[in-house]
Nucleic acid binder design. Structure first.
Length: 274
DNA sequence: GTCCAGGATTCAG
DNA sequence: CTGAATCATGGA
């Protein structure tokens, strides 16, 4: 077993300063799922094959990495300076996502030392057994994940090829993957490919737009068109604020009566299944 | 036990 | 074409 140790803490220079509160939002706000904070305020996380620690002290942001790994600081700078990291709130659903991601890494990902693991590659996911995937509590998503993994591991250059596409073609290509619909495709294009003009519409954004603009009963696809037209090249950033505001309950207006959040109960009329 | 998740797919109308 | 039921799992 090889030696594994943290480096000393060193200041981290970023293009934009990151206060402690912003750091928390970036690392635990619903976009990243692999950071944990201890009682002393030290964040430990994994992204790509980088294992890093972060803390916010009086002298500003400090980092530490694994002894012998030279790329950690540059990786952190790229990671934390990436556009699009905005405030969000933790809910129980996000806790479940964290759990699924952690188990996938532990079960299938490459060990990085110190008990940390990279996320599994698409090839590793494609080769996983049913039992391994089932143990990660993915539910019905297991089959989707495997299907997408098999498609992508057979196409090693997929990321570069996708990046070369127009945003419209990128969304179409993403949605051809199993389990990837309009919302997830928009998220991947926005967060993964930096297409800031994408406007993911989920249940929270539906509520936010109903409350803020009075768009009651609009179909998601129509709200997406509105978002892109109204907010323009940075619609994705606007979406993040809308989402955070909706979740925080900050969007109250005459257009948002209490019944907005009430969903009709699904009626299960006798089994018509054959 | 019931309800619900930042949804996607399938099926009925 | 649009809207509802269904999908598997865990936590509140």
């Amino acid at each position: 077993m090889e030696a594994w140790a943290w480096t000393a803490w060193r200041p981290l220079r970023l293009a934009d300063p990151v206060p402690a509160r912003t750091l928390r939002e970036q690392l635990d706000g619903g976009q990243a799922f692999r950071w944990n904070v201890d009682d002393a305020g030290v964040w430990t996380g994994v992204f790509g094959t980088t294992v890093a620690g972060l803390r916010s002290g009086p002298a500003g942001l400090e980092w530490r990495g694994v002894v012998g790994v030279a790329s950690t600081e540059a990786a952190l700078q790229t990671y934390l300076d990436a556009p699009g990291a905005q405030a969000q709130l933790v809910n129980k659903r996000i806790l479940q996502i964290r759990q699924m991601v952690a188990q996938l890494a532990t079960s299938l990902g490459e060990p990085l030392g110190g008990g940390q693991h990279a996320l599994p590659t698409w090839a590793q996911l494609a080769a996983a057994t049913d039992g391994q995937l089932k143990a990660c509590a993915l539910g019905y998503r297991a089959a989707f994940l495997r299907g997408t993994a098999r498609r992508l591991q057979a196409r090693p250059r997929w990321a570069d090829e996708f990046q070369a596409l127009s945003t419209a073609d990128l969304l179409t290509e993403l949605q051809s993957l199993p389990g990837v619909g309009p919302k997830v495709a928009a998220c991947v294009a926005l967060f993964g490919f930096g297409r800031l003009e994408c406007f993911p519409v989920d249940t929270w954004v539906v509520q936010a737009l109903a409350a803020a603009y009075g768009f009651r009963g609009w179909a998601p696809v129509r709200l997406e068109e509105f978002g892109r037209a109204h907010f323009g090249p940075a619609a994705g950033l606007a979406q993040q604020y809308l989402f955070a505001a909706a979740r925080a309950g900050a969007l109250l207006s005459p257009y948002a009566p209490t019944d907005v959040a009430v969903k009709p109960r699904p009626k299960s009329r006798g089994r018509a299944r054959r």
